[in-house]
Design a binder for these strands. Structure first.
Lengths: 268, 268
DNA sequence: CGAACCCTTGACAGAAATCAACTAAGGTGG
DNA sequence: CCACCTTAGTTGATTTCTGTCAAGGGTTCG
């Protein structure tokens, strides 16, 4: 279903080591982190302890942050930029999800002290919080409010994966493309025109189809209310598109707790 | 991808109401429940409170327990039998998962106080614990150990769904069938012959293909070390099957915490 | 016994992957 | 500035896979 990718990682291990021993934590980072949904409810003492060994890291585009199969060492929370979650097997690979501010990833592996089921790499230059998994589990045991935040985040991740899996099984490729485009419009405030957040090759991989097939599908969707020019998507006939997509809150919606991300878009 | 199902529910709402007001809780139930992984670590007081309004229920085969879109009211834990999780959209439906003793389902919706993303119905006659979602959330806040159990269960459910989604995107239908058959053999203790746990129609739906396609695929798998006669599967050439499947612990494995299910198979 | 139901098989149509070639855009180094 | 390279995206031809429709066999159960 998913073809072979070209090499994506542009930076060597040496670059990575260099970055890690030069953590660009900013003085404004901690207060900002404190307001994130995952950390805003916990006790001040727990927060301070949790972040004694945590640090914020800036990564360039295309860097592999974690590799599937490795033991979970750090919880990652995206502050800026975007991160691709992807899976590989037997010379095939595919995008499994995208994490944007202020989402966490590999939380489940940290909680279970297990190995990663997916790899992650930056799509663009990104700032990420790294919290040691052991400290995370300690904080979880000590702070009930934090435990609730973690469970809520976990439950949200599960439900997101269920939505994706439902889309894969219940809709064909054309319907997945159309529903994705409509969803992105919703995210942009029901805009009739917007820019794709990821490249078409990645998008195809995420939607479980080949890049060629996506390209052709986008062409045929011109008859159903969609215009595409480069990364720009224009909805030319929303009623027609909706009729095709048949949007369903249980597949295309987001949980209320996830929208809006508390303080997400607010300028600091 | 998934065809229309025949009507499956054999019992009316009236039957359901009748069953609910006649809870067949047994005297041996509570001690047994107490040993389940989800409840074995919590404080005795929390356990007692949590189960004042909970009850055990016996359901006949084919009964719809929950319907997607409904608000989460009860956490369900399967004690005996098996339950199918399925999803429906626009006159299509498909099986999303199966829950056997002593797995919980719709935990995520209860934690988030959200609506169900999937429906559930019994595959066979089953006994299920029903715990009010509000009580569950209270217990979660009051008992750190229970919170940890819940988070572990949630994380496990997430990881299971990730494995399924990876299989859907990275493997084609034939590979999914072959890997499923090999996995079932593993579950049966690497048996070279075993019975399918679900009907082929359901299995096809779970694997994201039509029943006709599954039937044909099973035929062609005879060349790769699989023999099927009715519900009986025989592995005629394990080496060849493994070469085809290329098993991967990150897709075909289970988390260590899940095997063996603590006290699962042990006679009481 | 008939009525469902499950499973299978065949024929066919449609969907999607593959292979190959081509264009366009961006970056690099001279 | 340009020649060159890489990469993303597109398009066409072709094969393979998969769903759909139709029909028939076997089983269970009332």
């Amino acid at each position: 279903m998913c073809g072979l990718f070209a090499a994506y990682v542009e930076f060597s291990i040496d670059d990575y080591q260099f970055l890690r021993i030069n953590p660009p934590m900013r003085s404004t980072d901690l207060p900002e982190i404190r307001r994130l949904p995952l950390f805003c409810s916990m006790a001040a003492a727990t927060f301070d302890t949790l972040f004694t060994h945590a640090y914020v890291q800036q990564f360039p585009a295309g860097l592999e942050l974690i590799r599937q199969g490795d033991p979970a060492d750090f919880l990652h929370v995206v502050l800026e930029g975007s991160v691709e979650l992807y899976a590989a097997w037997s010379d095939r690979q595919c995008m499994m999800g995208e994490v944007r501010p202020f989402g966490a990833f590999i939380l489940a592996a940290c909680i279970r002290d297990a190995t990663y089921l997916m790899s992650a790499r930056t799509i663009e230059r990104s700032r990420v919080i790294l919290v040691p998994a052991a400290d995370l589990r300690d904080a979880f045991r000590q702070d009930g409010e934090f435990a609730l935040s973690v469970a809520t985040e976990l439950a949200g991740a599960y439900r997101g994966m269920v939505r994706d899996a439902k889309g894969l099984k219940l809709r064909n490729a054309r319907e997945r493309v159309a529903s994705y485009l409509l969803r992105q419009s919703r995210l942009a405030g029901d805009a009739s025109s917007y820019l794709l957040p990821v490249g078409k090759r990645l998008l195809a991989s995420y939607l479980g189809m080949t890049a060629e097939n996506l390209s052709r599908t986008l062409r045929t969707l011109e008859e159903d209310g969609i215009g595409v020019s480069g990364a720009r998507v224009t909805i030319t006939n929303r009623a027609r598109l909706i009729a095709l997509v048949r949007p369903d809150a249980l597949m295309d919606g987001r949980d209320p707790a996830d929208i809006p991300p508390p303080l997400a878009g607010a300028p600091r």
